[in-house]
Design a protein around this nucleic acid. Structure first.
Ligand SMILES: [Mn+2]
Ligand SMILES: [Mn+2]
Ligand SMILES: [Zn+2]
Ligand SMILES: [Zn+2]
Lengths: 127, 127
DNA sequence: TCTAAAATGCAACTCTGTTGCAATAGTGCG
DNA sequence: CGCACTATTGCAACAGAGTTGCATTTTAGA
């Protein structure tokens, strides 16, 4: 029991809106600038955790280890995040390529639970 | 002109040996424990940079964004690092699967320069 | 052996993320 | 509507990873 019920707050609403409206994944620092003084930076971390937990957004680790977040769009069916992400070395945008899913063959008996496929280079706009 | 010549030092030798002998990729903190008091932590960072620059090791960003290093073994031909890495959620080992290279199809005109394919789950020993 | 510069140690600093706790503010209910 | 419960927030303090500047040490070639 003890099912905690999520509440609607200004920070949560705003952050979710920002991510939903963004074409690229956003880092914590991006969001911090965008929300202005709406809330504390710790709150942003906590809201991001809650949104990810709720399946509204997903966390992405970029090539260099920086963490970004993107709204879930086509993740509805089964909610997997095994699509490819593209990281542009020029404009530094991180994009979800929702319908690119790589195929591979593992020689041994590995159990795959999660994946992180990131390509880095030049996006169509920067090429 | 101005070609700086690399020198052989105790720290560099030791760190390269550690990575060459390890079956799994090592984090900076792992190496720091392993070298004991041989050198400063800043030196470890600098040695790792130099070894990576020289193509003796490669840097790997794990699922959670932590950075690890592995000796280059089968990277000789052309020296690409587009193979898969496997991150075990139980024993926390990060392994290079040198001969697993995923295939994918990009719908648009992206220029791919680097890749990071990491699978996470249970390794054969932990399954 | 002598010397130039590559490499190191140390201190200080930035950036990212976490934790504890008291204060604040949603939500359901009477 | 007004209250009570507790999810959420702000703040301060902290931990970990990585960087930088500079004086000192050490390597390797002449
Ligand atoms: Mn995505
Ligand atoms: Mn590898
Ligand atoms: Zn771009
Ligand atoms: Zn394992």
């Amino acid at each position: 029991m003890d099912v905690k019920t999520a509440r609607k707050t200004a920070a949560k609403t705003k952050i979710h809106e920002l991510l939903a409206a963004s074409k690229t994944a956003l880092a914590h620092s991006d969001i911090q600038h965008m929300v202005g003084g709406l809330c504390d930076r710790v709150t942003i971390y906590r809201v991001l955790d809650r949104l990810a937990e709720a399946g509204a957004i997903h966390k992405i680790v970029d090539m260099d280890g920086t963490v970004k977040y993107a709204a879930c769009r086509m993740c509805s069916a089964g909610h997997h995040h095994n699509h490819v992400h593209f990281s542009c070395q020029k404009c530094h945008a991180l994009l979800c390529l929702e319908n690119v899913v790589p195929s591979y063959t593992l020689p041994e008996t590995y159990t795959v639970l999660e994946t992180n496929f990131t390509l880095s280079g030049l996006c169509p706009q920067c090429a």
